[in-house]
Every structure is written in C-alpha cells, then in structure tokens.
C-alpha cells in the first residue's frame, strides 16, 4: 500500500521542538530538501509506521540561517552541509561541519544566488 504523506507548515523558530517530537515518536529522517522560490522553502521529511510527514518552513533568500538538527538526528549532517554549500543557508552547530567544503564547486551557493526561478516566464 502507498504510504500516506502529509505536509505540515511550521515556523522556522520551532524547528528543533518539532523535530524532537518526531524523534520521540520513533520516526526516522528520510531527507531534507530546499527549493528556491520567492523565499527558500525547506522540507524535512520523517517517516514512521503511519506515514511520511514533511515539515515545511520558509526562510528569506538573503542570509538565511537555521539551527542544526544533528544533535537529534546525527544522519542529518550530510543534508545540512549540502544545503549550506548549494543554497548558502548558514546552519549553526553542525556536528560534522565541513565549512563549505562538502561540495567543492566553483561558484558559491549556485542554487540561491544565480538561480533564475523567480524571473521565469509565466505561461501565456
């Protein structure tokens, strides 16, 4: 059977509390993903027996900053370093912090700074 999925919108300030709730419920971290829109849209996906929950939060594109969840889920360090390198999100206190050396790429934050998405043409 297909696992049910739901998207829960949260404020970026209560991220740690919500993630701790997921941990207490015995859920595992599936992925963290960011999308560049007018603002940065982050999805933290957790999976339990009942289904998948995506915690959705918004961040400004200019100097985004978030606390790290690696103290709760250690496996999140890879996703968080990726978000730091590709989206330029400043994530505080990652357990294994590469300081921007996770992907050694030629331009900083390619998914955020030079991203074309908001200026894209709308269908006529």
């Amino acid at each position: 059977m297909e696992t049910p999925q739901e998207i829960v919108t949260i404020a970026s300030s209560d991220l740690l509390a919500k993630v701790q709730e997921q941990k207490d419920a015995g859920h595992r971290l599936v992925q963290i993903c960011a999308t560049t829109l007018e603002q940065l849209e982050l999805s933290y996906s957790f999976m339990g027996k009942e289904g998948i929950t995506h915690l959705r939060l918004l961040l400004p594109r200019d100097q985004p900053s978030l606390p790290s969840i690696t103290d709760i889920y250690f496996g999140a360090f890879a996703y968080e370093n990726e978000m730091h390198d590709l989206f330029g999100i400043d994530i505080r206190d990652i357990r294994v912090d590469y300081k921007g050396k996770f992907y050694k790429i030629s331009e900083p934050a390619p998914f955020n700074a030079g991203c074309l998405i908001p200026t894209r043409k709308q269908p006529s």
Partner: peptide, 20 residues
C-alpha cells in the same frame, strides 16, 4: 508551476542516505 520548466527537481539517492 504550470510552465514547461519545473521549479525544482530533487533526488535523494540511496548512497547519500547510506553515508552516515
């Protein structure tokens, strides 16, 4: 977003999850 270009495509590959 209703145009022929997608807003975002993301793939979380198994090797990435298996690194920790």
């Amino acid at each position: 977003n209703g145009t022929k270009h997608l807003d975002r495509f993301r793939v979380r590959t198994p090797t990435f999850a298996n690194i920790p």
